[in-house]
Design a protein around this nucleic acid. Sequence first.
DNA 1: TTTCATTTCGGAATCATTCCAGATTAGATG
DNA 2: CATCTAATCTGGAATGATTCCGAAATGAAA
Lengths: 144, 144
Amino acid sequence: MKMINKEDLIGQLKEKGLKITPQRLAIINALVENRDAHPGANLIYTEARKKAKRVSLSTVYATLKDFSENGLIKQLEFDRMENRYDGNLSEHINLICKRCGTIIDYNLPPTIEPKDIARKAGFVVTDARMEYSGYCRDCLKRTK
Amino acid sequence: MKMINKEDLIGQLKEKGLKITPQRLAIINALVENRDAHPGANLIYTEARKKAKRVSLSTVYATLKDFSENGLIKQLEFDRMENRYDGNLSEHINLICKRCGTIIDYNLPPTIEPKDIARKAGFVVTDARMEYSGYCRDCLKRTK
DNA sequence: TTTCATTTCGGAATCATTCCAGATTAGATG
DNA sequence: CATCTAATCTGGAATGATTCCGAAATGAAA
């Protein structure tokens, strides 16, 4: 399971010629510390502020976008709900609770081969998104 | 492959006690005629208008939401891009082109068992979303 | 230390989607 | 067929996450 960590992220910034700024370090910290929560931009903003006072929401958005586009993290898009960010880069399904918004990782052995898709549909896969939504254990309990 | 069709959709409306209105019929027509395009709300609006002059965008949104929530169609959510609607209710992957937005269905044999997820993660799956994005055949050609 | 492309900032703009309150209507009932 | 009512429709305003913008600040190379 390939999970983001501080050193890797900083290393990747250097590799790609991106500058190491206090804001980016604070955002990286927030991302790594909350990687299991699949945080949204606002959580990252709040957490990053605790460490480095000088971070704006614009910067958080720009940075998360940059990171996603460079493959450092993965963006989970929604329309009404805030986008969420995922530091688990292995093939997995995100289990998204419809009631409370919790996102749980569900690891699985890779079964579908991008190669087959390229051959059969002439489509080159660069990003995957697999999500099941429904109700998490806690929310199921609460109903009873 | 379970694809939506006019008769089924109308039948489901009746079953669920929803009224058959000219607006809904126009939207159903537009959905069925464009089911391969994975249309967005605006395309449905434009197409529905051609048949029945009296349809508002609000109604189109409300209706597509209703239909999705009732499982008649499936909503594909994005943050910046318009949401799209899918009339293919079978398990399949949507191949989404990053450049032109085309969405292609890629059918596959069901491999992951919701039962396993319920057992292992205590999570009850009600909806699935599987998407690969990348570049479609046409866009790949255009680059060369 | 100088330089400059990159990054950051705050506030305004965007835009798909939802909300709202009033008007209309499908379809059940007699 | 006429009446009735909950469901539906409407257009315009509101929402809210995200992006855009021009100006100010700054990392890091020379």
